[in-house]
Write a protein that binds this DNA or RNA. Structure first.
Lengths: 195, 195
DNA sequence: GTCTATACACCGATAGAC
DNA sequence: GTCTATCGGTGTATAGAC
């Protein structure tokens, strides 16, 4: 299974540049355009260098995904530690910067076992984090509604945020202002701005 | 631009089988796995037949997408004509059958101009349809909240429904019951089951 | 309407020189 | 650490026989 080819160090700048290039190619041309040649060209390198730093193209892809979700997780943890975790959590997901890339990885998860496993783990982890931090907001009868559940709120925020980001990326704009207003109204009810 | 190669009829069963195969390949292996060979093999045909019925592989893809959104639109229109359009609209989107395929097309829209244009047109069209039919539910003060807007409700339903479907497809289940309960509670408020 | 044969480009991956 | 050279495989697309 394991090739005997020698590999470059994980601290290498070139290695990191290859991972940057993977993200750029996926954003601009989709995961279907990912080849050792397209990635290397984006980084200004020869395609054979991919195989100096990674055993296979898929190894490069998985390393890029790991780095991507680590950075995402850091943003979420920072948000949940802020004074208004629910507002901050929404801000992270209302920002459409990574919507396209996230969507590409999610599509890949449907067809690539390694990406799928990691996505499920990560998804459940974020949900748990959101639950733990946001849960206490619901102890008092903020909206006075039994049906409002921390899990549900966490999910609704991520689902709607990613969808807004995706639509923005391809050029659908109708109703976005209205939906953002609705979400922000709901969040204000659950986590009042003036304490 | 246009090749002089002869083309098969649009009424052909084989042509339709090729479009079925496109959907199956995309669902199971992703849009990145779409090739004339993979599609034809799925349909039990030789790959050269793709080029008897379509000028290019992209033409086959676009024809498949047109058929896909036509069928989707028919389901939505049927739902919006029912006695409880909001409940029916949610049921269409709560069904995860097409979530994976929809997501593949949405990813493609980011990188393929023809698919992108068609997706924007279709997205805005569905939003308008939902708006027109659902709007009247909000004339009376059902929830008594100004922030609740028909556009926003239409979007929230589609966003959350597709996200639930995607997560179900890859195996994330946490919080789904809770979120469905929340959505259905909201919908019951806006469109009471017992009139 | 479906087949065989074929064109030429690009793919992942490796070996080995520098 | 990066390069040239090369492999077998697969891609789109076409021409033309049946």
């Amino acid at each position: 299974m394991a090739s005997k080819r020698r590999l470059g160090l994980e601290t290498s700048k070139t290695r990191s540049a290859l991972m940057d290039a993977v993200g750029n190619v996926m954003r601009e041309d989709g995961y279907g355009a990912l080849t050792a040649r397209s990635v290397a060209e984006r980084a200004g390198l020869k395609h054979q260098l991919v195989y100096y730093y990674f055993q296979t193209l898929e190894d490069l892809l998985i390393a890029t995904y790991e780095r991507h979700i680590e950075r995402y997780l850091a943003r979420i943890e920072l948000a949940l530690e802020s004074e208004q975790p629910l507002h901050a959590f929404w801000q992270v997901h209302a920002n459409p910067t990574d919507a396209t890339l996230n969507s590409e990885f999610l599509s890949m998860a449907n067809h690539n076992e390694a990406i799928r496993t990691r996505t499920v783990e990560f998804g459940e982890h974020v949900r748990r984090l959101g639950f733990e931090k946001i849960e206490k907001l619901f102890r008092r009868p903020a909206g006075g509604q039994d049906a409002v559940n921390p899990f549900a709120v966490t999910m609704a925020i991520t689902a709607i945020g990613s969808n807004l980001g995706l639509e923005t990326a391809i050029g659908i704009t109708g109703g976005h202002t209205e939906l953002r207003a609705l979400i922000e109204w709901c969040i204000d009810q659950l986590e009042p701005t003036s304490p």
